[in-house]
Amino acid sequence: MDNHDKIIIAELTKLLLGGTAHISLQDALRDLKPELRGEKAAHMPYSIWQLVEHIRIAQWDMLQFSKDAEHKSPKWPDDYWPKENAPANESLWAGAITQINSDLDEFIELMEHSNLYEKLPHGDGQNILREALQMADHNAYHIGEIVALRRFFGDWK
Rank of each mutant, 00 (worst) to 15 (best):
residue 112 E to H: 14
residue 130 R to L: 13
residue 95 G to Y: 02
residue 85 N to G: 12
residue 14 K to S: 13
residue 107 F to L: 07
residue 64 Q to Y: 03
residue 92 L to M: 13
residue 69 A to H: 07
residue 138 H to Y: 05
residue 144 G to F: 01
residue 100 I to C: 04
residue 10 A to M: 04
residue 41 A to H: 08
residue 56 R to Q: 12
residue 19 G to A: 06
residue 22 H to Q: 12
residue 93 W to L: 05
residue 23 I to D: 07
residue 104 L to K: 11
residue 52 V to W: 02
residue 100 I to F: 05
residue 33 K to T: 12
residue 114 S to A: 12
residue 44 M to G: 02
residue 35 E to N: 12
residue 84 E to C: 07
residue 26 Q to E: 15
residue 26 Q to D: 15
residue 10 A to G: 03
residue 62 M to E: 03
residue 94 A to H: 08
residue 21 A to E: 15
residue 20 T to F: 05
residue 113 H to D: 11
residue 5 D to Y: 04
residue 122 H to C: 02
residue 28 A to F: 06
residue 60 W to R: 13
residue 55 I to A: 10
residue 132 A to E: 04
residue 129 L to H: 00
residue 53 E to R: 07
residue 90 E to Q: 14
residue 66 S to K: 01
residue 133 L to C: 08
residue 2 D to C: 05
residue 139 N to E: 14
residue 6 K to V: 04
residue 90 E to T: 12
residue 150 R to Q: 02
residue 60 W to D: 11
residue 92 L to R: 10
residue 108 I to M: 06
residue 52 V to L: 15
residue 149 L to E: 05
residue 116 L to S: 02
residue 92 L to K: 12
residue 25 L to Y: 05
residue 10 A to N: 10
residue 7 I to D: 11
residue 66 S to R: 00
residue 84 E to G: 06
residue 64 Q to G: 05
residue 77 P to T: 13
residue 81 W to R: 12
residue 73 S to E: 11
residue 104 L to Q: 13
residue 83 K to G: 13
residue 91 S to N: 12
residue 83 K to D: 15
residue 22 H to T: 12
residue 136 A to D: 01
residue 151 R to Y: 03
residue 148 A to M: 13
residue 68 D to Y: 05
residue 123 G to K: 00
residue 110 L to K: 08
residue 49 W to P: 10
residue 73 S to F: 00
residue 42 A to F: 08
residue 129 L to E: 00
residue 98 T to Y: 07
residue 98 T to R: 10
residue 36 L to P: 00
residue 155 D to H: 09
residue 145 E to G: 04
residue 7 I to H: 08
residue 149 L to I: 10
residue 58 A to K: 03
residue 2 D to H: 08
residue 74 P to V: 09
residue 43 H to K: 13
residue 138 H to R: 08
residue 17 L to N: 13
residue 155 D to K: 07
residue 156 W to C: 01
residue 84 E to N: 15
residue 131 E to L: 11
residue 64 Q to I: 03
residue 84 E to K: 12
residue 126 Q to N: 14
residue 122 H to N: 03
residue 143 I to E: 00
residue 139 N to R: 10
residue 82 P to L: 09
residue 89 N to P: 02
residue 37 R to T: 14
residue 5 D to L: 09
residue 70 E to W: 04
residue 106 E to S: 15
residue 107 F to Q: 01
residue 139 N to Q: 15
residue 133 L to W: 02
residue 32 L to T: 15
residue 87 P to T: 06
residue 16 L to M: 15
residue 21 A to S: 10
residue 39 E to A: 15
residue 123 G to M: 00
residue 34 P to C: 05
residue 127 N to L: 01
residue 151 R to D: 06
residue 18 G to E: 09
residue 110 L to W: 04
residue 93 W to S: 02
residue 83 K to N: 13
residue 31 D to P: 04
residue 84 E to T: 14
residue 70 E to S: 14
residue 55 I to D: 08
residue 6 K to P: 00
residue 96 A to K: 02
residue 122 H to G: 02
residue 92 L to A: 14
residue 77 P to L: 13
